[in-house]
Design a protein around this nucleic acid. Structure first.
Length: 453
RNA sequence: GGAGAGGUCGCCUAGUGGACUAUGGCGCCGCACUGGAAAUGCGGUUCGCGGCAACGCGUCGAGGGUUCGAAUCCCUCCCUCUCCGCCA
């Protein structure tokens, strides 16, 4: 794998401005270019010396074959010449290795510039592209369904937050999760567990049956090369759990193993686009996130997600991002969850993305928008790191592919939105119609035995 | 985890220090022949870096080492296969 300096040399100003827009250090670009110039000089010198040494060594062989004594003066002179070149080469190679390592490190820290029409700025600069569905209020007129929690006087009822609903229905046990693993490792039980399973299966079935995705069930750990390939290293290294004993990383998203499927490969143009849909558990340390949006299952260390990963021809990637975002939106529509689509501003984007849409669902219990999907075009940024190329025509030179990925979808906040959107005054929760065949029930109405504390 | 056998260009394969400038076949691309095709023949066909180019350099799982010179010898690691052990 080689990160490559090509994108810098093509248009350094673009890369520099891209770094500034994302709040990163633009001087890395100049340092990398400077290092690269020195690297090329050294390589030129080294290559020339190597050519001389190759010729000298070859002539030794020919001289001996020609009848000269291997230990004679003629051969000794050639040998000395070759040795001398070798010594100079050793010195140059050492310098080259040093410069290479420096440039490589710099390149890994230069972010992918955003596309020109992406708004520059932070959270306030995000643009709401569209919204769908009704943004239900927290309070709602009581509709006459009488249950244990019926509002007095029948005036209004209040939607409970999802953690309350989940607890009452015995679906999620945070306390026992904390006991057996730690805070942020929820245990799903009874209908909660069934709902997880139903969501995962339905998502995968829609992707594979309706949208042409190939299903992938990847490893839950990856090696360092994979983590580097998709850009988690060095940018998000602190986010990942590390199995130090075996030098493995717990996957923060299926994006990492699935995108790396084609690392160091040359794909045929006829095989593109490649569309993968993969379920995986996702592990995130969320260091420093304590106290913010962490109530219930909104931010946890282990969650479940179905991820979409695309390999596209460069000219098709922009349209593919719109398509993939639409696929994720369609899932939300069919679940009946109100959502909005945001075009993320430069500083809200990750290190690796050129364009990113976030999908947020409305959670009426807590009256907040919750991010459930992030759909991004990486263009050739990941492909360059991973050396994923394709042949535009048979026999043509390989070119970098474009990679994209998007959640389709992440589970915890979908569960939260379902529990808050479809809860009823009597405390039960309607199962969204697409999930009913998978759950075998239309409504979640009571706690499973032994699940309350 | 232990013992053994392996890893060469998309696939198969030859290669045990200098003629390796890495064989040969399959596949693929081009050309010829054909009404068109098949068959056949001829040529091409790893990938990367540097260079306007000619060309040069690197690349035989990865990284070190020995040597004037390494696909070839040595060391470490990774992976695959077989047998044993363990095991959902």
């Amino acid at each position: 794998m080689s990160v490559g300096v090509g994108r810098l040399r093509e248009d350094p100003d673009l890369i520099r401005q891209g770094a500034i827009d994302k709040g990163e250090d633009p001087s890395l670009v100049d340092a990398a270019l400077e290092g690269d110039a020195r690297r090329r000089t050294l390589q030129g010198e080294g290559d020339t010396l190597r050519a001389e040494r190759n010729a000298a060594s070859k002539s030794i062989g020919e001289t001996i074959k020609g009848g000269a004594r291997p230990d004679g003066p003629e051969v000794a002179a050639l040998r000395a010449r070759s040795t001398e070149i070798g010594e100079r080469l050793t010195s140059i190679d050492a310098d080259l290795a040093e410069v290479d390592a420096i440039v490589e490190d710099l390149l890994l820290r230069i972010p992918n510039p955003a596309e020109p029409d992406v708004p520059v700025g932070g959270e306030d600069s995000n643009v709401t592209v569209r919204t769908w569905g009704e943004q239900l209020p927290h309070d709602q007129p009581f509709e006459g369904e009488v249950g244990a929690d019926a509002a007095p006087g029948g005036a209004t009822w209040e939607r409970r937050p999802h953690w309350d609903v989940a607890d009452r229905l015995g679906m999620i046990d945070l306390g026992r999760g904390a006991k057996i693993a730690g805070s942020g490792f929820p245990v799903y039980m009874g209908a909660g567990s069934q709902l997880q399973r139903a969501l995962i299966m339905w998502f995968l079935d829609v992707h594979t049956r309706e949208n042409g995705f190939t299903e992938v069930w990847p490893p839950a750990v990856v090696n360092q090369a994979s983590a580097r390939g998709t850009g988690q290293i060095p940018d998000k290294e602190d986010q990942m759990y590390v199995v130090t004993r075996d030098d493995l990383y717990l996957v923060p998203t299926a994006e990492v193993p699935v995108t790396n499927l084609h690392r160091d490969e040359i794909l045929e143009a006829a095989d593109l686009p490649i569309r993968y849909a993969a379920y995986s558990p996702c592990f995130r340390r969320e260091a420093g996130a304590a106290g913010k949006d962490t109530r219930g299952i909104l931010r946890v260390h282990q969650f479940d997600k179905v991820e979409m990963v695309l390999f596209e021809r460069p000219e098709a990637s922009a349209e593919a991002l719109e398509w993939m975002t639409g696929v994720a939106e369609d899932l939300l529509k069919r679940l009946g969850l109100a959502y909005r689509v945001l075009l993320m501003a430069t500083r809200e984007m990750g290190f690796t993305q050129a364009r990113k849409y976030d999908l947020e669902v409305w959670a009426p219990g807590v009256e907040r928008w919750l991010e459930v999907s992030s759909c991004s075009n990486f263009k050739d940024f990941q492909a360059r790191r991973m050396a994923v190329r394709y042949r535009p025509e048979p026999g043509a030179k390989p070119e970098l592919v474009h990679t994209l990925n998007g959640s389709g979808l992440a589970l915890p906040r979908i569960v939260a939105a379902i529990l808050e959107t479809f809860q009823r005054p009597d405390g039960s929760v309607d199962v969204p119609p697409p999930l009913r065949p998978y759950m075998g029930i239309d409504r979640i109405a009571s706690a499973a035995a032994g699940s309350s504390q």
